[in-house]
Amino acid sequence: MDEARPFTYDGGRVDPGETENVRYTVSQTYLGDPVRMPVTIVNGEGAGPRLFLAAAAHGDELNGVEVVREVAHEWDLADLCGTLVCCPVLNVPGFIAQQRYLPVYDRDLNRSFPGRDDSTGAKRIANEIFRNFVAPCDYGLDFHTSTRGRTNMLHVRADMADERVARLAKSFATNVVIASDGPGGTLRREATDAGVPTVTVEMGEAHRFQRDLIDRALVGVRSVLAEFGLLPSASVHWPGWRTIIDGSDEKTWIRADAGGLVDMHFDRGAFVEAGDPICTIANPFKTDRTVVEAPFTGLLVGVLENPLVYPGNPLCHLVKLDDRTQRALERNGGIDDRA
């Protein structure tokens, strides 16, 4: 039988049966003070895989922060078999400034992985994170929200062509999985390429905690722990139905062709039919109106929250559904996905 292993990182070690809260230095300020990232490492007494939970690679995306914190500090993990590496805030400078990107470097941390120790500030931070807390793991969950002004229903993005990633994505138990390998430099793409199957979990909007989405994401985390044997007391969750969106012809961002103020007619998670008016764009006098219709029947995975647009702004993210899922949603009118 395999034995539980210590988890080591630069300057530290967490033995089986131990939990350690770490403030790990990833960079320095202009004054030479450390920029320290919070990490909680829970190493179970029993042998098992290592799973990292990461959030706030974009500093204004907060829902995942609370998911990771609750797993690390509120769950009963006494029977944990394996290791949880919980990183609630990857982008510490962005989190402090409440900005999406690294404010000093003006770079996207989630396009900087796996990083380099002799490159830009963003890539040096990415290197410290990746080398110490991602590469030693066996699987990963990376939590995100939509950018400000938009909101996403809870869903997973994953490279479903990779069997290990597909197993992880399905075990998280969301209704919708969007298949893609992800852009280069993203945590999930680079971790998967390095042999650590990782998925992105999208949920809600920036700058706030949305309790309903957080609770549903926690169900997904527990389901993953059950699937991979980290929590013997947990059970794999089935979400009731699932659709896997694969191919550019099955999903599209609908963009504004006119500037103005937007009246959205559907919320995220809504089922719409081809030709349905998704939203109306009007000028300040409401004398000039543009009605935006659904180009095909599908599900609104993401929608606009900020009602101000100019031509080219994204209005919503629409995905096609297979016939079985479409019939099910036609019966109930979509998903109740509002927090």
Rank of each mutant, 00 (worst) to 15 (best):
L225V: 01
L225Y: 14
A226M: 06
E227M: 04
F228I: 09
F228G: 01
F228V: 04
G229N: 04
L230I: 01
L230E: 05
L231Y: 10
L231I: 00
P232R: 02
S233V: 09
S233M: 03
S233D: 08
A234L: 10
S235M: 12
S235D: 15
V236Y: 10
V236F: 05
V236L: 05
H237E: 14
H237Q: 10
H237V: 11
H237T: 12
W238T: 14
G240H: 12
G240M: 02
W241K: 05
R242L: 10
R242V: 00
R242T: 11
T243Q: 03
T243V: 11
T243A: 13
T243H: 13
T243K: 07
I244A: 06
I244K: 03
I245Y: 06
D246H: 13
G247H: 00
G247L: 08
S248M: 13
S248T: 13
S248H: 10
S248C: 08
S248Q: 15
D249E: 10
D249N: 15
D249T: 14
E250P: 03
E250D: 13
K251V: 14
K251I: 15
T252F: 06
W253M: 04
I254W: 01
I254H: 02
I254N: 07
R255Q: 11
R255K: 14
A256E: 01
A256G: 05
A256H: 04
D257Y: 14
A258G: 12
A258S: 15
A258Y: 03
G259E: 09
G259I: 01
G260Y: 03
L261Y: 14
V262F: 06
V262L: 04
V262E: 07
V262Q: 00
D263S: 09
D263T: 13
D263K: 15
M264S: 00
H265L: 07
F266V: 06
D267V: 05
R268K: 13
R268N: 10
A270E: 15
F271W: 08
V272G: 01
V272I: 13
A274Q: 09
A274T: 12
A274F: 00
G275P: 01
D276G: 00
D276L: 05
P277G: 08
I278F: 07
I278T: 02
C279R: 08
C279W: 09
C279D: 00
T280G: 02
T280M: 09
T280Q: 05
T280S: 05
I281K: 04
I281V: 07
A282E: 13
A282P: 03
A282Q: 13
P284A: 09
P284T: 02
F285Q: 09
F285M: 14
K286T: 14
K286C: 05
K286R: 15
T287G: 15
T287Q: 13
T287H: 11
D288I: 11
D288A: 10
D288P: 10
D288V: 14
D288R: 15
R289K: 15
R289Q: 11
T290P: 03
T290K: 01
T290V: 15
T290D: 12
V291K: 00
V291H: 10
V292P: 04
V292I: 14
E293I: 05
E293A: 13
E293T: 09
E293L: 11
A294M: 06
P295V: 00
P295D: 05
P295R: 01
P295L: 04
T297M: 03
T297V: 09
G298S: 02
L299Y: 10
